[in-house]
Write a protein that binds this DNA or RNA. Structure first.
Lengths: 119, 119
DNA sequence: TGAACATATAAGCATATGCTGATATGCTGA
DNA sequence: TCAGCATATCAGCATATGCTTATATGTTCA
């Protein structure tokens, strides 16, 4: 069951689905953030200035394909990358080309809107 | 002007556009083929069983963003990857996860439909 | 020049996508 | 238990996308 790095030949169909998901500016930015941070829905809402509904639907798509996972902590649901996804390596490879999105986080912190239950 | 490999931070907008282009099964397959072979429009038409117009429009989109380039040879126009594209590294990284599409080429050869002006 | 072939463009259709506002569900703490 | 907040889902709309057919443009060769 050997498998060369960089060549976990996914089905081309599935690869296309993942790339289509990443091919949206909002989702791509969200994924880049999730690479390093856990975020909850309300944080994304503040960051991108689109409706809570829109954020929720983006996250649902990402989760349906298994790219992100969620876990509830109190009334918040935190999202993070699903490192066990078949597409995880592909996702990381792509995200390496996406500029850092931490500005959004800093913006939140400046406004005191960053949720931090992680301690 | 140093630049770490894997981190040619493209604009996130532009990265999104490239990923959206690659997020179509037909275009993704075409790009994978173009990674190793030059192909002309009529070959793609035979391979994918969609209209010549559809193929032409896919190629136009890829070319508009600079992912592929063309050059005419007689009455055929051959397409190939544009290795000078800003997104070339990204494209290669993605294609590494796409299974080989050479079966399409072999199919063409079996039918005697492969154009070969390259010699 | 004109027939035959390769490719590009135009127009139109069906479906997919991203967004919004309204509403439903779930959790918490008084 | 209920008010208040976080999140999810529903319905609907505007736009984008992928495809087709019809037509235009470009190239070759007799």
């Amino acid at each position: 069951m050997t498998m060369k790095v960089q060549e976990q030949e996914q089905d081309i169909e599935k690869t296309g689905i993942v790339l289509k998901l990443l091919g949206d500016k909002t989702r791509l930015s969200m994924m880049k953030l999730l690479e390093k941070h856990e975020c909850c829905v309300c944080e994304f809402v503040e960051m991108y200035h689109i409706s809570q509904s829109a954020i929720s639907q983006h996250l649902r798509k990402l989760r349906d394909v298994g790219l992100v996972k969620e876990h509830r902590r109190g009334q918040w649901i935190f999202y993070s990358l699903n490192t066990t996804s078949d597409a995880y390596e592909l996702v990381l490879s792509v995200l390496a080309f996406v500029p850092d999105q931490d500005g959004h986080i800093r913006e939140l912190e400046k406004q005191g809107l960053r949720i931090n239950c992680s301690n």
